[in-house]
Amino acid sequence: MSGRPFSHPSGSTDPGDRSASGPGQNANLDSHFGEAPGTNGRREAPDSRGLGDVALRRVAAFGGVYSNHRALRAAIQDARERGAEALLCLGDLGAFGPSPDKTVQILRDEGIPVVRGNYDDSIARGLDDCQCGYTDPRDNHYARISYDYTLANTAGEHREWMATFPPEIRFRLGDLRVLAFHGSPRRMNEFLWETTTPTHFLERMARKAGADVLLGTHTGIHWSRRLGDRSWYVNAGALGRPANDGRREVWYAMLEAQAGESELKVEFIPVEYEVELLADEMRDEGLPDEFIETIRTGWWTTCLEVLPGKERKGGRW
């Protein structure tokens, strides 16, 4: 694994060169993680250098923005009001929603660090598809529409910025070592669903990664599990579309651990935003009615193939 800390964006070849952060890029993060004096003497994993030794107490994490710039703005405001010391995006900025540049611009302006998602990787590199790996013809049909639209409407300079996203970010929360990624620590596009991911599998993954908390997204449905005395898995869910639960809100995760303590508190927070205005934008952009139905009803209408039986059963389609 080649974890590049998120305080070294902008294509710096030297991971120790902190000055490489351009204006507006992760400045927020540097102030949160990089600039404060070190307070924690615990040994870090080798590729977590550059995050500083600052132990945070309260971090908001969100994934799968899918061009839902309205939900993103609402979530950022909500997380700050709730006292988040740092915000972290777990990747997949594009797909599904309208005008992808709007979402990218918000994240750049806010200096929020982003872990590379499969969508970002594909858009940055101009790949043929989103690397979701669907085999069902209907899912592939909608995935194609979504991907072609996003690729055509993402500015070149934003694609270059996406190419700098690190595949993982490590930081310290209280006394806990957190590893943030998109799909899994080993694969950007690995689905970790609640009903198909054994505890022993996650424990082993955490052990190998040298982390107490595994923090990911990719599936679009939030969940968490305590793995052992001192290890957790958290799926932050997605801001881009509802959690296939019949509610219009989207979700993010607030992680909290007190200084000197090794107990994690996870809170999933529903975010309300202007669903109808987003629906209008999607219509104006010619995006499929099925996508609009999802944000208006809270039920997934596409990309259903990858859902395990239990998660599928919880939805309408």
Binding site: M1, S2, N118, D121, Q131, C132, G133, Y134, T135, P167, G183, S184, R186, R187, M188, N189, E190, F191, E305, V306, P308
Partner: peptide, 11 residues
């Protein structure tokens, strides 16, 4: 396998 493995997308 039941569903796509997520093969590809390696680091």
């Amino acid at each position: 396998s039941n569903s796509p493995s997520g093969a590809g997308g390696d680091r």
